[in-house]
Design a protein around this nucleic acid. Sequence first.
DNA 1: AGTTGTACCAGCGTGTCAAATGGTACATAT
DNA 2: ATATGTACCATTTGACACGCTGGTACAACT
Lengths: 125, 125
Amino acid sequence: MITIDLDSSEPLFNQLIIQIKKTIENRLLKPGDSLPSIRQLAAELDINSKTVAKAYRLLERDNVLVSKGYRGTFVHPKAEENLQVNIKEWLDTELPKDVARYRAAGATDSEIRIAFNQAISKTGN
Amino acid sequence: MITIDLDSSEPLFNQLIIQIKKTIENRLLKPGDSLPSIRQLAAELDINSKTVAKAYRLLERDNVLVSKGYRGTFVHPKAEENLQVNIKEWLDTELPKDVARYRAAGATDSEIRIAFNQAISKTGN
DNA sequence: AGTTGTACCAGCGTGTCAAATGGTACATAT
DNA sequence: ATATGTACCATTTGACACGCTGGTACAACT
């Protein structure tokens, strides 16, 4: 159902995200269905449970999954609508535009990096 | 005239920039005046010429200095006006606003960093 | 010849970060 | 007891960037 390629350059947690989304897209998993538990899936794939937890956590933030604590993790009721609504993809379109703006102002890549690191290190989350 | 603190955490090239600006601000250097050559200043301070060249290059971009090739480097005619007009400072106000925007969208600092690195590594300068 | 700024090439030391691993613990439920 | 998601602690690995150094070379000028 879900496979993992340890030799891929794609991070494991992201492989999980992609495949879970695809499974929902193909309707093999429907809204309300339960997913394997974090530890269970980690054991099947022989990877660390934290890695699975990370994938679940990110998918929950994007409203693709819903965690119900000790009752397990489920497919979000409106999961299908949110398969595309991806913060990662939004960042991937937004950030290059901003970087282009900095460069147009004459800033060096090095300067941009330094200013970025300062900006993100202050009041981080 | 210009001193360097090798033990400071402040990068050498930035120490140079700060001190050259201050010298112009104190009118010890006026528009049109010539600066010591890159190699000359590097020899006096016993640092690498590339470090001095970097400081000069950045100051020229900010219109504080003007390089005239084999004729040397001079204080920009309108240097005094441009002592404050700093791309670095502009970045320091612009980037935090953008980062705040990303965070408001729900992005993790880690995600922002990754997207940023991808954005800036493609077509770098 | 000597000097100017500039442009390449490379390397080193340091630090930071992402990704993943491992362990432990907790409250809440069956 | 057992299982759930979650939250801490920690370490390791690899990659990458910065700041700085060093060498070499070039065209243009005195």
